[in-house]
Amino acid sequence: MEKMLEVKNLMVFFENALALNDFSMAVERGEIVGVLGSNSAGKTTLMNTISGLILDMKKKEERRGGERISVLGELKFEGEDILNKKPSERVKKGIVLSRERHPIFRDSDVVENLKIAGYLHKRHEVKERIDLTFKLFPHLQGMKKRKAGLMSGGEQQMLAIGIALVAKPRLLLMDEPLLGLSPMLQADLVRAIKNIRLAGITVLVTEQFARTLLPIIDRGYVIENGMLVFEGSRQELFDNPEVKSAYLGI
């Protein structure tokens, strides 16, 4: 199979601190790939680098004379180098990030949140995508007119994923979608991620704890202090004693 996303020797510096150190990974079309790591291991930096948000952060820091952010290495999407492409160009290619801690548009209602996310797409496509979101999260359908800021954490997370889906991803990046949710909601979301794959979308998802996520990923990477420490199939991750103790709590 052709590699959909290829990350090679990626280095990201915040001033002199190394957030990602020589990190390499790949995602193939149709996979669900997991990135496991504890807090501040570099998961969010990885997601921001793949989605291009880091370029925007870099630009703003430069303007205000703040932290110097440098990104080195290779980042390819379907064979094309995208390391210096703007976030919007990457969205057009189909790379969409759902950021951590359910970032939604708080003052807008559910439908408006989803409509805002359809900025780059035609009206009828947006409508189809909104329908898909409601099919994946039937719970949201009953609260179309609810103000997003007033919803529960779980509902906001569903909406955050919906926002990303309306932007028409082919590769969906999910940064800690399970963070802070109850076990029951986590199970719901994991089921939704499976269905997202069935809808033809490749998924790259980060997580701190492997227990809920491990059963549905095809392969996984373990990141510590910005470095790749282990990679393997789901079974290999299950069998690895260190992964077991650090991320499964066994």
């Binding site: 976030p87 970032p103 939604i104 548009f105 780059l120």
Partner: peptide, 14 residues
């Protein structure tokens, strides 16, 4: 509306 409420999320949808 999106940009006013959450710039980063707006950026991440293009």
């Amino acid at each position: 509306r999106g940009m006013a409420q959450n710039e980063r999320t707006a950026l991440s949808v293009g």
